[in-house]
Amino acid sequence: MNELLVVKNLKKYFKTKFGLVKAVDGITFHINEGETFALVGESGSGKSTTGHMIVGMYAPTSGEIYYKMNNISVHASKRPKNITREIQVVFQDPASSLNPSRYIKDIIGTPLKVYNLIRNSTEVEQKVADLLENVELPPELYMYRKPRELGGGELQAIAIARALSTNPKLIILDEPTSALDVITQAKIINLLLNLQKKHNLTYLFITHDLAVVRNIASRVAVMYLGKIVETAPTIELFNHCRHPYSMMLFSSIPVISEDEKNLKPKKITSIGEIPSSLSIPPGCRFHTRCPYAEARCKVEEPSLKHINSGHIVACHLAE
């Protein structure tokens, strides 16, 4: 398969007045063209920071990001324009990712203008109308509205329309549905799936909701405190997850039917909270919350083990 995006040993440290925050601490993965790759973890695991680096919101501290074999480990302003055009992003909170004082037409029209995708101003209106129709919003109702007059689901659809305006190949979806209720979430996910088929898009789906991941992702990476602890194809991960942290995430998903309950691994009650990335525990980062932690977990950092094709785990106990 064609690797669209490759991330190698990516690190991002932030200097703060409290010390060095190791938000992302050496992660490696790749995304194939046309697939949905999910990055899962609690808040503070560094999953959003990873997404932001791929978009180019900031440059990595070290490590590389390759997009179609081009090294893009720099800030977006230093990247070739045809690459920033092809990588788009949808943020978690549409209310803060869409400018509240501008018309929807201008919000969607801005990338069109920046990338010279339209020739004159009458064309903007036509193109924006097409894009709005594409996300199932009637253009005549939305064109001249402002974000604060609309609801969360509509805004997220508009954010998606804006991302689509540049004919991207890769869209980073940074928790696009976690601020929405179930029905709106289902609508947005359906929309995303339809668009993916229609435009042959590749998604990097960042979320903490494993139930959604199960339904849309082809491969999953589980992140904890800046490291990827387990990577596997979705079905494989859901049937044979090996890392205790993945198990903990699984067993805490609330489910509504019996057959789902049977799918969940042995119950691991979640204890404690994710430690601050200012003081990362030595050894295996998860040992403070792990019910199976042994003596060596506290000193020795586990290496990545290949279980079988595409299933990688970082745990001493996985054999």
Partner: peptide, 8 residues
């Protein structure tokens, strides 16, 4: 941040 990223 988005408008900076796309190069406005």
């Amino acid at each position: 941040i988005y408008s900076e990223v796309i190069g406005v």
